[in-house]
Amino acid sequence: MTTATSSRVWWPICVLSAAFLLWRAAVPGGPGMARVYVKPAPAEADASSAGWLAARPDESGAVVSPARTAGVWVAALLTLAIFSFLYKDNPAYRFAEAVMVGVSAAYFMVAGFWDGLVPKLFIPLSQMEWGTVGEVGRSLLTLTPLVLGMMLLWRLLPRGGWIARWPLAFIVGTYAGIRLLSFLEADFVSQIRNTIVPLVVRDTDGLGFDLWASVRNGLMLGGVLSCLAYFFFSMDHRGWYGRVARVGVWYLMITFGASFAFTVMGRIALLASRLEFLFDDWLWLIDPLGKRPPPGL
């Protein structure tokens, strides 16, 4: 599509969309859209100001929240800006992406500060005592992560970045320690144990023979062994061994096919969720959760 054709198509769409939004949002007595209502939160005994909580429009004391209403508009426009990438890369998408990167990096930093550094470092530091030998020992243990943390931040300085290797080594060593045993226990030994299943399964009454369960167990055991055969490269995949490994490949292909289908399912659920936000919270075209009184009431 040429730029001129593209403009001819997009201008009418943009004008019609703007007119539609204006009608829904601004016409008195119109259907309305994007308004968020709040009510005062019940004051707790130990709080001097309780803030505001989301409310239904028909609840007593409910008022429109300008900040949250503006928020819904911002969220909707950012959503549309990101969806616009599907047509082609454009400044609106780039802007929304830049906002996301900045906000998310700061979000993680703030969460790390209030939920990590404050309870795990600053509060223990404020409680340090140096009176007895035991207290000195405990205080030194409290100071250690601070020192390691400062060494980690040394990476940001132009010289002496190698100092960050010490805390990095601590992180890698800790991971190595906890993963060595947990993977062996849960993902190796337990998986072998889970695979040891009876190939002849008795009925629940113990007298008959459950053919279907036996076939399932056999298929599962054969599948694990053939896939492992495929992963074992110390033997040439030739002759009978090659044929077993090939069966393993078939199992893996079915596994990947199932994973693909599941992945499709997951992505669609995420899209449905975003569209529901646009149709429900922003445009008020649907109200699946009954958040608003029916139109005309």
């Binding site: 930093m109 790390g112 500060f113 990590g116 550094l117 992560p145 390691l148 943390g149 805390p167 992180i171």
Partner: peptide, 10 residues
């Protein structure tokens, strides 16, 4: 604590 510092570093 180091995981929190990593957020700061990032």
């Amino acid at each position: 604590v180091l995981a929190s510092f990593a957020f700061v570093l990032g």
